[in-house]
Simulated scan of single mutants.
Amino acid sequence: MAAPSPSRRALDAFDRAILRIVQRDNRMPQRKIAQAVNLSTAAVQRRIAAMEHGGVIAANVAIVDPDAVGLGVTSIVEVNLIDEKAATVDRAKALFRSDPDVQQCYYVTGGRSFIMLIVAPDMRSYEATTRRLFAENEAVASYHSYLALSRVKAGMELVIPDAG
């Protein structure tokens, strides 16, 4: 039997402990992570590299406050496509994935095709985005926007369960 691919490798308690740390602060020195999880620095380095290679750690990024960079409009948008044919859905996914104003996008069940989060500097820019992505898109049957009044919580930190 072949060994599991890096992306299929089961995460053990050490991997999960490392993930809990790096998703809060991925700039923490690996020697400090090693001390916190009771492993050698080299072991932590190997485990992090394996999790990056396997796609468990998808990216190492800085989370920027949209207001601090002049992106004052946040909208949650529900999108309905004209049909759910694979070609229609795939084209929509490609378009939404490639647009820089779309921060998050989910293909969903429950009477909608997509739910997405869009940020823009102002309402004029937001209108241009909605025209480009939805109003002028023949694959979109309808869309509904919810403008955020305030950001109550925004984060990417996952609650990582213990190894089971």
Rank of each mutant, 00 (worst) to 15 (best):
L95T: 08
A58E: 15
S150R: 08
E84T: 13
R112H: 14
A120D: 09
Q45W: 05
A128E: 09
S145I: 05
A43N: 09
S142M: 10
D65K: 11
P6L: 03
G72A: 10
P29R: 12
D90I: 01
K32G: 07
M1T: 13
G110W: 07
V61T: 15
A120Y: 05
D12I: 11
M123L: 05
A87T: 12
G55P: 07
T41I: 04
V89L: 13
I18H: 02
R9I: 05
T88C: 06
L71Q: 02
E84G: 11
R31P: 03
R97L: 14
A50L: 08
Q104H: 15
R9P: 02
R24A: 11
K85L: 10
N80Y: 12
L81I: 04
R20T: 03
E138L: 11
Q35F: 03
A87S: 14
V69K: 01
G55D: 13
P4I: 06
A42C: 13
L158F: 14
D15W: 00
R24S: 11
I118G: 01
T74M: 01
L133N: 03
L71F: 04
M116I: 06
A148V: 02
K153M: 14
F96V: 05
L71T: 00
A139E: 04
Q103E: 15
D83G: 07
I160K: 07
H53G: 01
A10P: 12
V79C: 06
F96M: 06
I18V: 06
A3K: 12
F96H: 05
A49Q: 14
A139Y: 05
R131M: 01
Q45T: 15
M28Y: 04
L11Q: 08
E78V: 01
G54S: 04
I18Q: 01
E157N: 10
I33P: 02
A17F: 00
R9D: 04
V140R: 02
P4Q: 06
R46F: 15
R9M: 09
S75P: 02
A87G: 10
V102D: 11
L133Q: 02
R132H: 12
T41Y: 06
A43K: 04
Q45S: 15
V159S: 10
A148F: 00
I115T: 11
D162W: 04
